[in-house]
Design a protein around this nucleic acid. Structure first.
Length: 621
DNA sequence: CTAGGGTTAG
């Protein structure tokens, strides 16, 4: 061992030098492992029982502690012990010192299965997927058999990267080594397929598992929710409980999220009840999820109750509550929560400000919105990104300040995305600025060439201006590019059941009645002055077909079903997984007027209350 | 000595 300058130590091991700084080189091994500490002069003991080092590493609380043990190991030659070195690599990786972990890994003359999985896992957990895959490839190249520890890590990397192609390759490796029977491996595959939205493959693996454990259940339940299959998600949860698998708080969090996503109020109450009965603590994650669930089921006051009862709140909790008030059009209360947040000493982040600015725009709080927009950088060093600008464009646009909205968008340093152009387009709706609308729509088309809605929109803007050549061009482009339909669903809850409708849905048992209801309504709607906004249908189809197409929106189907299935006086609550088109809003407005029913539409997490032909919530339809 | 699922916005 050499002492360099007076603070640095070099320790040799197998002819290789390890460099340690002051804190690193010193371990007083005469005292127990819990007392690793700095002393002025290093005192080294001869090699000790590997177990000692393991315990020392286990109690290391920071990188400097790990380095100290490492130094001691190097001096005493214990580094050559596989178990100890593996643990050392593991600890370095845990503390995200991947360079040191890898240096050690490369130095090892002999590696075992643990060494490989610790290294692959270290890279993947640290988010370094390239090196994670690289190390895995190296493992294969060295003729080592991948095992049930290593594989979940690489599968997880595929999941995080949404790399389905690689995922399928790894799936083959799993089959080749007969490891599908391992729950960790299989659950990872199910999760990977679900996150890549190949839910059928996930389901198939899941169904073929002999002993499904809680994690796999959680993964598939969350997977179906993520893939917008509400009924399967909720049903699977019940099936899991029926089969005697006891959910933990993570599983509860998953089902809470499913309820939030689908606005499944009845189920939400049951889940809440289950959580109370089984005495789950309202930890910060589950509590926050429940706030979100109640808010997205339309019950912002229940959300607030949970919020008030939570002992620990983090920035996500506060942001969720602000967002909840925001999309219910209760802007003042959202601002109030923000003030409380600041008083409690929690710092807002970028998402907090998105929620806050949205709350302002949906409640018409123009001045406040502008104030927060400048304050976020000046006082909280949160830089405005495109989402914040979108909120501001929305806010100014709704207020009729189209020029200011445009100026703001122009002044942005960041690139405009789809949401920003949509907000500008929304602003154009109010003030009919054709040039800007055309620009916005063509930008949308450029950004999302696969979204057929943009083509139709632009085509109609041209049609309105009588530019038929361009209309034809749009039509041709659409056929050329063989566009996928954007799939959109609506959910409605009647009693304790949830019903899902997709565009043009005829699978529902009461389809006949639903379409008959829409037909019988159409006359009354017409009398009331409802003119279908054919903006959202292609221009060169027959008028009759057009009107038919208008009545096949998932939301309208759901509302018609709601009129049939619910008792008079019950508000109809619809949840939609995409932002609804303008005509759906107009439609809802007229339906609420002629039927005297309250219709609550939730889309893209915004709530619109239609009562006797009016819409609250700062919407400009 | 190694392993998995969960919170806000979009």
């Amino acid at each position: 061992m050499l002492k360099l300058k007076n603070q640095t130590f070099l320790v040799t091991n197998h002819g290789r030098f390890y460099k340690f700084s002051t804190a690193a080189a010193i371990v007083d091994t005469t005292i127990t492992h819990t007392h690793i500490q700095e002393v002025s002069q290093p005192r080294f003991l001869p090699s000790l029982d590997p177990k000692f080092y393991i315990t020392a590493l286990l109690s290391s609380r920071n990188v400097s502690h790990i380095r100290q043990v490492h130094a001691q190991l190097a001096v005493n030659g214990v580094v050559q012990n596989l178990t100890v070195t593996n643990k050392l690599i593991y600890m370095y990786a845990q503390h995200k010192v991947l360079g040191d972990a890898y240096a050690l890994f490369c130095d090892m003359e002999e590696k075992d299965a643990v060494t490989w999985s610790v290294m692959v896992g270290g890279f993947v957990k640290g988010g370094d997927f390239t090196n994670g895959f690289g190390t895995f490839r190296e493992l294969i190249r060295c003729g080592v058999a991948p095992d049930n520890y290593t594989l979940p890590f690489v599968i997880r990397a595929c999941r995080d990267l949404l790399d389905l192609k690689m995922g399928r390759l790894i799936h083959d490796v799993v089959l080749k080594h007969g490891l599908l029977s391992d729950n960790f491996v299989c659950a990872a595959l199910v999760d990977m397929y679900a996150k890549c939205r190949v839910i059928d493959d996930a389901r198939q693996l899941f169904d073929n598992m002999p002993h499904r454990d809680l994690v796999t259940w959680t993964v598939i339940i969350g997977g179906f929710a993520e893939c917008s299959n509400a009924s399967e998600s909720l049903v699977l949860f019940d099936r899991m409980v029926d089969e005697g698998v006891v959910p933990d708080k993570i599983a509860m969090g998953t089902i809470v999220n499913a309820c939030a996503k689908f606005g499944a109020m009845h189920k939400a109450r049951l889940v809440h009840d289950y959580i109370c009965r089984n005495k789950f603590s309202l930890d910060v994650i589950l509590g926050t999820a429940m706030i979100d669930m109640y808010a997205k089921c339309g019950c912002v006051d229940s959300a607030r109750e949970i919020f008030d009862r939570m002992q620990v709140k983090n920035v996500i909790t506060w942001s969720a509550m602000i967002a909840a008030y925001g999309y219910h059009g209760r802007g003042r209360e959202a601002l109030n929560i923000f003030d409380m947040m600041l008083s409690s000493g929690v710092l807002p982040n970028a998402i907090t400000f998105i929620s806050l600015l949205y709350a302002c725009s949906h409640s018409g709080l123009i001045q406040e919105g502008l104030r927060f927009f400048s304050l976020m950088w000046d006082e909280f060093s949160v830089r405005a990104d495109v989402k914040h600008y979108t909120c501001m464009v929305d806010l100014l646009g709704r207020a009729g300040k189209l020029d200011e909205a445009l100026n703001l968008a122009e002044s942005m340093a960041v690139e405009k995305d789809e949401g920003l152009w949509s907000a500008l387009l929304g602003a154009c709706r109010i003030h009919g600025n054709l040039d800007l609308a055309e620009r916005a729509a063509s930008s949308l088309l450029e950004l999302q060439p696969q979204n057929s809605g943009h083509y139709i929109l632009l085509s109609n803007i041209y049609a309105r201006a009588g530019r038929w050549k361009e209309v034809a061009k749009m039509r041709n482009l659409m056929t050329q590019r063989r566009l996928k339909k954007i799939s959109s669903s609506s959910w409605i809850e009647v009693g304790d059941k949830n019903y899902q409708f997709s565009v043009g849905d005829r699978t529902h048992l009461q389809s006949e009645n639903i379409y008959a209801m829409l037909k019988s309504l159409s006359h009354k709607l017409e009398l009331a002055g409802y003119v279908p906004d054919t903006n959202f249908v292609l221009h060169d189809v027959d008028e009759e077909v057009k009107v038919h197409m208008l009545y096949t929106h998932s939301e309208k189907l759901a509302i018609a079903f709601g009129l049939i299935a619910t008792a008079d006086g019950t508000p109809i609550r619809i949840t939609k997984n995409l932002r609804v088109c303008g005509d759906c809003h107009t439609f809802s407005k007229f339906i609420s007027a002629i039927t005297q029913r309250v219709i609550i539409v939730r889309d893209a997490n915004r709530f619109h209350h239609f009562r006797e032909g009016t819409c609250s919530c700062g919407d400009y339809w």
